[in-house]
């Protein structure tokens, strides 16, 4: 009999890998450092997900229940791997509390960290309470309290969403596109327009990357059905005139500087590599790529593989990723881990 698969991280990718392995009859151990499963969508309190429009607590909550109730999955929350030794087919993971877990293979589904907007001080986050992040707006929506200005609780007349906060910016060492923020912002803009029809929403963009089918349901729909306005301008700074926020930049289509009052400014924050990636890299002996994400080998022959045999990776641990694709990658990594286990088992038997 093969040893169980160790899955690190209980977000969409880890949950999907655990479910896939258990369904195939493979025992696994799911380790999550937080107290609850669900990953970013649950921990950060996301509202309705793209593209299903299902509430995160229902959609991801369902994945959590499915795994929790599966006798083949052993769930360890509040647990972190301290050291990881051995070879493919025969790993031993030692937890911070000293417990040991034997594993035949492991899947890293360690996710990402939201960009901290304080790193772009010129855009006012941390200085003005009405400058918020997309995550905060998600929480306003999912809590049922609605979108309100944090300073005084008023309904904003005018909301600006700034795209590419913490993405595509060499100045702060983040050269990647975070992939999901355009679509998420269009989704949030529509939610705001739906719940507050008198609130105007403006999206300041460099490019719009609502890729694939999101084009119609998010970019087009936000303009055509919800009259969200898109302005091609990268904002220079967000200040305040004492009453409202002042957004300054250049409207590149009219070649004129702008200095426009807003009630609320939303940063569409990007996806950073997990802040723990350096530690994960040294514990698990996996390489990081130049951006700081866990490095994947070429997809064509080595789907979900890292540089270390028997250690696989899935989801946003490898780079900015959507929830749907993280789930798919979780299943792909499960398949890769199963293959590796069987190969090791066969070699051992001969």
């Amino acid at each position: 009999m093969t040893k169980p698969v160790l899955i690190v991280g209980g977000g969409p990718a880890g949950l999907s890998a655990a479910h896939a392995l258990a369904t195939a009859g493979q025992d696994c151990v799911l380790v999550e450092k937080e107290a609850v499963l669900g990953g970013a969508p649950i921990l950060s309190g996301y509202a309705k997900l793209v593209p299903s429009h299902e509430w995160a607590k229902d959609a991801i909550g369902g994945m959590v229940d499915r795994v929790k109730n599966n006798p083949r999955v052993k769930v360890m929350t509040g647990a972190e791997v301290q050291s990881f030794d051995g070879d493919a087919g025969n790993f031993t993971a030692t937890m911070k509390d000293g417990k040991k877990v034997e594993a035949g293979a492991t899947i890293l589904a360690t996710g990402f960290t939201h960009f901290d907007s304080v790193n772009k001080p010129e855009w006012g986050f941390g200085t003005y309470p009405d400058v918020v992040t997309t995550v905060q707006v998600e929480q306003m929506l999912s809590s049922g309290k609605g979108v309100r200005c944090p300073s005084d609780g008023r309904v904003p007349d005018r909301v600006a969403i700034l795209l590419c906060v913490g993405s595509r910016d060499r100045q702060i060492g983040r050269e990647w596109c975070s992939k999901i923020c355009c679509t998420v912002s269009a989704n949030i803009a529509m939610e705001i327009r739906e719940s507050l029809p008198n609130t105007n929403v403006y999206i300041y963009y460099m490019d719009i990357r609502t890729f694939g089918l999101y084009e119609g349901d998010y970019y087009w729909a936000s303009q055509e059905e919800y009259k969200v306005k898109y302005i091609k301008a990268r904002i220079a700074e967000v200040t305040s005139d004492g009453k409202r926020l002042l957004v300054k930049g250049e409207d590149t289509l009219v070649k004129r500087p702008i200095s426009i009052p807003f009630d609320m400014v939303v940063h569409a924050i990007g996806m950073d590599p997990n802040v723990d990636n350096m530690t994960l890299s040294s514990v698990f002996g996996v390489d990081l790529n130049k951006y700081g994400y866990i490095d994947k080998r070429s997809t064509y022959a080595h789907l979900a593989e890292t540089n270390r045999a028997g250690v696989f990776v899935a989801g946003a641990a490898t780079g900015p990723e959507t929830i749907d694709d993280s789930i798919a990658q979780g299943q792909a990594a499960a398949m890769a881990a199963l293959n590796a286990l069987h190969a090791a088992h066969k070699t051992a038997a001969e």
Partner: peptide
């Protein structure tokens, strides 16, 4: 100065 200082939201 030639900055745009506000949008006339009624126009569209």
């Amino acid at each position: 100065g030639r900055s745009v200082t506000d949008y006339n939201e009624a126009m569209q």
